[in-house]
Write a protein that binds this DNA or RNA. Structure first.
Length: 577
RNA sequence: GCCCCCGUAGCUCAACGGAUAGAGUACGAGCUUGCGGAGCUUGGAAUGUCAGUUCAAUUCUGACCGGGGGCACCA
């Protein structure tokens, strides 16, 4: 069955004898079944003279203002000579679930009541991702550093995207690309061996790292020593390898705690160190090497000036050691071979935008991927310190994520009567929602108070609304919905109507949030829905009220959508709170 | 110096080129025994500056101002 949106578009195309292939965005293209005729839409068209010609472009949008209908089109603005009243009149002769209405040069479409009520029962999510594979590279904390606030966005946004794509029927692979290789280990190895440090934990490692940079400022040769140690590690030196393994083990243990708290589980965690053999293969492949040239101090580089990128990508350092880029290219080769994805999403901060531009260009230049693969770098904004500056490990200003999470949980506890589990759901929910409600690319200034906000537009507000619906529904379990959907139509009040019109949008909101990589779209939607429900709840009595069965059905529908939406965002919904 | 992102209400954030720029918070005024007040109703308050494209610009283009990030041996 085609969506209402498609039905409207097809009807408009039919009326206007629209011939050009319409330009669909990705979601529509996947969604639309253009091979069918325009379905039941054409029944009302009697003959060719009913057709209005000369229309060049058709598009349909969600009006922002709800007074302008459920859908609207600017067709009459784009086609100046169009007789808008004639078009509306013809449209309304068709047997469609919407009614058209001219308003200025816009046409607004209103879903009919039966359709709205029916959507309470059947509101299916279109499987627009069927047959497509998407890899999401997210979280990716660095070994030997505490899990800091810096990786919160990647973890939370990445997980939300993962859930959204999966929900839409995509084959989704989540990979936690751990930062477990690279020169930073050379730094640690140098410090550990030079200082004869035998016993260390995660905070000790951070101290050592900070200390290294302090010393290196005075003595630049230390950087050289660090590279030497990393080179040793890459060559398989047993002492280096042993210390490295210990660092990895310590870190993973720490990360596990954080993921547990966050309720995040990532399919794979291959990490950078996994790609040793893939890198070798890459570096030995003549068709790759023909793009490699020698740069300053013997470094091996890939010239990207043909792709209008002035800075070349460094494939190997002067001493032959690998770089971030070597490992990322190897990772791409591996992923293509193993999963043959359609999209690879890197949920990584905006400070790496330039690097990813280089990486994607290089991957295409080297022929690691074919044209159909789409690379996406979400380039999220950063958490900034309250002074508006970037948090930096080197200056020791990292805020540890577990501290933030525990603080959130204890604040939720203080609100009173909730048990430990609920407090965790509320505290973590607050943090996740706070992160996700921001548009991905904007920076987020770190502020405890705002972060833990439990009122207004917040995770707990949504959870609270769900708890309310649960409470109502629990009291109405003995009521059976006996009427058919159509029979509810007459007595629907204004508040109920607003909820219905919001609920029916859910599937399209999900698709929009995924396709635009913007979970904040879903956040706003859920908040809007919850507000509408709470207004309704305050004004009308559900149990024992008029049209009771319908009201319960409405509460059920709202509850369901809120729960599903929050789940997609990675936010749990306590039964009570 | 060059490149990227951001600039919207006191503060924190929304808005696929569309119609009356939408929330939260803070501040002001309300919500009689209610199915849960972490709630609801209500008031004031905003697109950095200057041009341009367009029937239509917070959105696109250019310049400028302000903030953040980046520009090969870090990741």
């Amino acid at each position: 069955m085609s969506s209402t949106k498609e039905q409207i578009i097809k009807a408009l195309q039919a009326i206007t004898a629209f011939k050009n292939t319409p330009r669909f965005d990705r979601g529509d293209e996947l969604n639309a079944d253009m091979s069918s005729s325009f379905g039941r839409g054409n029944r009302g068209l009697k003959s060719a003279e009913d057709v209005i010609t000369g229309v060049k472009e058709i598009n349909l949008e969600f009006p922002e203002n709800e007074a302008f209908g459920d859908y609207s089109t600017n067709i009459a603005l784009l086609n100046k000579n169009l007789n808008i009243d004639e078009l509306v009149e013809k449209f309304n002769r068709l047997d469609l679930p919407v009614k058209a209405e001219a308003r200025g040069r816009f046409i607004n479409f209103w879903l009919k009541k039966e359709v709205l009520v029916d959507s309470l029962i059947h509101n299916d999510i279109p499987a627009i991702g069927k047959g497509k594979t998407v890899i999401i590279d997210y979280s990716s904390p660095n070994i030997a550093k505490p899990f800091g606030i810096g990786h919160l966005r990647s973890t939370i946004i990445g997980q939300a995207l993962y859930n959204l794509y999966k929900f839409l029927g995509y084959e989704v692979i989540g990979d936690n690309h751990l930062g477990d290789w690279g020169t930073q280990f050379g730094k640690l190895l140098y410090m550990i061996t030079a200082g004869n440090v035998s016993d260390f934990d995660i905070s000790k490692l951070e101290e050592i790292y900070v200390e290294f940079h302090r010393l290196a400022e005075k003595d630049p040769t230390l950087e050289e020593k660090a590279r030497e140690w990393f080179k040793k590690l890459e060559e398989g030196d047993s002492q280096a390898r042993e210390i490295w393994q210990k660092c990895v083990d310590i870190s993973l243990e720490e990360f596990e705690r954080v993921y547990e708290l966050l309720g995040v589980k990532i399919d794979f965690a291959f990490g950078e160190s996994y790609y040793g053999s893939e890198m070798k293969e890459l570096l030995g492949n003549p068709s790759i090497l023909k793009h490699v040239s020698e740069g300053e101090d013997g470094a091996k580089i890939i010239d990207l000036s043909g792709k209008s990128i002035n800075t070349p990508l460094m494939l190997l350092k002067g001493d032959g050691g690998t770089t971030y880029a070597t490992r990322d290219l190897a990772t791409i080769a591996f992923r293509v071979r193993k999963w043959n994805p359609d999209i690879i999403i890197y949920e990584v901060g905006a400070e790496q935008s330039f690097y990813f531009k280089q990486l994607f260009a290089a991957a295409r230049l080297l022929g690691l991927v074919d044209k159909k693969i789409e690379f996406v770098h979400t380039a999220h904004g950063l958490y900034l310190a309250e002074d508006g500056k970037k948090f930096a490990t080197r200056e020791g200003k990292t805020i540890r994520l577990d501290e933030v999470l525990n603080e959130a949980i204890s604040r939720a506890e203080k609100l009173g009567n909730s048990d430990e589990k609920t407090a965790q759901q509320v505290g973590i929910g607050a943090i996740k929602y706070f992160d996700l409600m921001h548009s991905v690319q904007s920076n987020v200034v770190f502020d405890w108070e705002k972060m833990m906000n439990l009122e207004g537009n917040s995770g707990p507000y949504l959870q609270y609304t769900v708890a309310r619906t649960n409470s109502v529904l629990a009291k109405s379990t003995n009521l059976q919905i006996s009427k058919s959907a159509n029979s509810f139509g007459k007595e629907i009040n204004e508040e109920e109507m607003r909820i219905l019109r919001t609920l029916v949008r859910f599937p399209e909101i999900i698709a929009t949030a995924a396709i635009n990589y913007s979970p904040n779209t879903l956040c706003s939607y859920l908040y809007d829905l919850a507000q509408k429900f709470n207004s309704f709840y305050n004004k009308h009595k559900i149990i024992g009220g008029e049209n009771e069965e319908f009201k319960i059905l409405l509460a059920k529908g709202t509850s369901q959508v809120l729960k599903t939406g929050l789940k997609l965002l990675g936010i749990e919904t306590p039964e009570r709170m």
